[in-house]
Simulated assay, not measured.
Amino acid sequence: MTDSVNRRTAASQKRRRLTAAAARVLHEQGVERTTLADIAREADVPVGNVYYYFKTKDELVRAALSEHSAHLDELTAALEQLPDPLDRLKALVEAWVGRRDTAARRGCPTGTLAVELDKRADGDLDAEAGAVIRRLLDWAAGQFRELGLPDPDGLALTLVAGYQGMSLLANALRDPDVMTREGGRLLSWLDSLRGA
């Protein structure tokens, strides 16, 4: 390999580490409390290097949103391997419940970021966070549509609202069992739709 290829590879890996670190730190600390130095430390990158890849904190927030979107794509791609759309939806709920400890400590990564960004007076990052949630809604609606159920968009909204609600309450109460209990209710609700 040439030196220029090695440098490009190293730069790509550094940017990737910064993006992943931004997603983690912003979820843990929130946008306002997070500094570029926090993200650099988490990524094990000198703070001066951060500015080479991201000129502003907003650019890092965009990168974190991109990371959340990529995680959603990975999850839904894995769920698509299941042959039955109802099983896909139930596996989604089980994945949410599987992250109950994280939800109890910090809430939903994308949902909490969307709420925090909405409170800012400037920019359009809140809409970008909403777009990630919209992707989840669209995917879930597609599953309900494939099941042939009426009002698939409304059912998707009910499902995602249930997740956001249980995530918020688990966080507010610092109680991961909220996720377990409410996840069980969502699973029962999904099972009831099969006969609808």
Score class of each variant (00 low, 15 high):
residue 158 T to V: 09
residue 128 E to R: 11
residue 122 D to M: 06
residue 128 E to K: 07
residue 136 L to Q: 06
residue 167 S to M: 14
residue 73 D to K: 13
residue 144 F to M: 03
residue 106 R to E: 08
residue 64 A to M: 12
residue 153 D to W: 12
residue 168 L to D: 14
residue 115 V to I: 11
residue 144 F to T: 01
residue 100 R to I: 00
residue 98 G to Q: 10
residue 76 T to K: 08
residue 105 R to F: 07
residue 120 R to H: 14
residue 173 L to I: 01
residue 151 D to P: 02
residue 87 D to Q: 14
residue 141 A to S: 07
residue 153 D to G: 15
residue 172 A to E: 13
residue 81 Q to I: 03
residue 179 M to N: 09
residue 103 A to P: 01
residue 119 K to V: 03
residue 144 F to N: 03
residue 64 A to G: 07
residue 72 L to D: 04
residue 92 L to S: 05
residue 138 D to M: 03
residue 175 D to P: 03
residue 94 E to S: 14
residue 160 V to E: 08
residue 154 G to A: 12
residue 174 R to L: 01
residue 131 A to H: 08
residue 104 A to Y: 13
residue 163 Y to A: 08
residue 102 T to V: 03
residue 134 R to Y: 02
residue 99 R to F: 05
residue 59 E to I: 02
residue 150 P to K: 12
residue 86 L to S: 02
residue 146 E to R: 14
residue 173 L to W: 15
residue 140 A to E: 07
residue 100 R to F: 04
residue 55 K to C: 04
residue 84 D to P: 00
residue 128 E to I: 01
residue 123 G to F: 06
residue 174 R to Q: 13
residue 74 E to D: 12
residue 169 L to E: 13
residue 127 A to D: 09
residue 147 L to E: 08
residue 113 L to C: 01
residue 134 R to G: 03
residue 179 M to P: 08
residue 79 L to A: 05
residue 94 E to H: 06
residue 161 A to E: 11
residue 61 V to M: 08
residue 130 G to T: 00
residue 104 A to N: 12
residue 165 G to P: 04
residue 132 V to P: 03
residue 74 E to A: 09
residue 139 W to D: 01
residue 95 A to H: 15
residue 161 A to C: 07
residue 62 R to P: 00
residue 104 A to H: 13
residue 94 E to F: 08
residue 98 G to Y: 10
residue 84 D to M: 01
residue 149 L to F: 09
residue 138 D to T: 09
residue 170 A to H: 06
residue 81 Q to S: 10
residue 166 M to C: 05
residue 69 S to F: 00
residue 66 S to V: 00
residue 119 K to I: 02
residue 138 D to V: 07
residue 112 T to Q: 10
residue 65 L to A: 02
residue 116 E to K: 05
residue 116 E to P: 00
residue 87 D to I: 01
residue 62 R to E: 01
residue 159 L to D: 05
residue 72 L to K: 04
residue 95 A to W: 15
residue 141 A to L: 03
residue 125 L to R: 05
residue 151 D to Y: 10
residue 89 L to I: 06
residue 110 T to K: 08
residue 120 R to K: 15
residue 171 N to F: 12
residue 133 I to N: 10
residue 116 E to R: 13
residue 70 A to T: 02
residue 167 S to W: 12
residue 155 L to Y: 11
residue 93 V to S: 07
residue 70 A to E: 04
residue 81 Q to H: 15
residue 128 E to V: 07
residue 100 R to Q: 06
residue 134 R to F: 02
residue 158 T to M: 11
residue 115 V to D: 12
residue 63 A to S: 07
residue 114 A to P: 00
residue 109 P to Q: 09
residue 142 G to A: 08
residue 155 L to G: 03
residue 86 L to D: 02
residue 127 A to T: 11
residue 74 E to W: 05
residue 167 S to R: 10
residue 99 R to T: 04
